[in-house]
Design a protein around this nucleic acid. Structure first.
Lengths: 132, 132
DNA sequence: TCTGTATATACTCCACATGGCATATACGTG
DNA sequence: CACGTATATGCCATGTGGAGTATATACAGA
């Protein structure tokens, strides 16, 4: 049924604007195909087709509710993007740190900075939040 | 005349595997076109063309060193990806909390290998659909 | 079973980015 | 200036994927 597909990167999925729109819609809560269709003003077959791609790539999953299918996000592919981003994140946070130090010098008042140099910083306070 | 470019998303840039390979190469340090050419085993014109795309999209910048151009990363587009990811990060970290102890260990290290897909990830039930 | 609704799939057309090749430009050296 | 190296650009052919449309499947109710 859903099987063989050429190995595609998560980026092959995310490159399509409509798919990104769908994903953004699903952040808030699960949605039916019809709801997506209405909210994004796109023809139903297009919605279904993109949803299929998203499903096959593991970005979403669906459950059956009578005649409608409720789609919701799955986390793994997003984590994959995050993982890909990791090396670059190290790189750009170095830049940020440099800028930060520079600004700190010009700005006399003292923001409570304890570190003069930090090896790496995820992304300026990645919300590890929503903790248990 | 580097300017005008159709409004493309960062994903339009990142979708190209060779471009991602180039970016990964540049994480360690700046490289000349010839070095990229050799390391990635791709014809020089292709390297130059991809570099042009990357440059126009703000992913890289170059400086002149005699006859060669040294390319290095610029942080902004990556931050843009990170920003796009943010809402979903909130979403998936909620999931992570539920499974935290199990997922914690496979998280961090993604060796910046080139284009090899990430092998592990016990994602149960990622299907692979049929294509033409 | 027939009907309406909800979603999925099949198929065609077309644009466009990519790869390959040839060639142009830039720079340094003799 | 001529030549070699390093990089950029122009052109063409091709493949792939998305849009659009028609149609198929699934389910619920009368």
């Amino acid at each position: 049924m859903e099987y063989i597909q050429s190995v595609q990167s998560v980026f092959d999925i995310l490159v399509e604007p409509n798919r990104r729109a769908i994903l953004s819609l699903l952040v808030s809560s699960q949605q039916s195909v019809g709801e997506i269709e209405r909210r994004l003003h796109m023809p139903q077959p297009m919605v279904s087709k993109h949803l299929r791609v998203l499903r096959q790539a593991g970005f979403v999953e669906s459950t059956v509710d009578a005649q409608r299918r409720l789609y919701r996000l799955k986390p793994e592919p997003f984590q994959e993007v995050d993982a890909w981003l990791a090396p670059f994140r190290r790189f750009w946070s170095a830049h940020l740190d440099a800028l930060e130090r520079h600004l700190d010098r010009m700005d006399a008042p003292t923001p409570p900075k304890q570190k003069t140099r930090k090896p790496r910083r995820p992304n300026g306070g990645r919300d590890k939040g929503a903790k248990k």
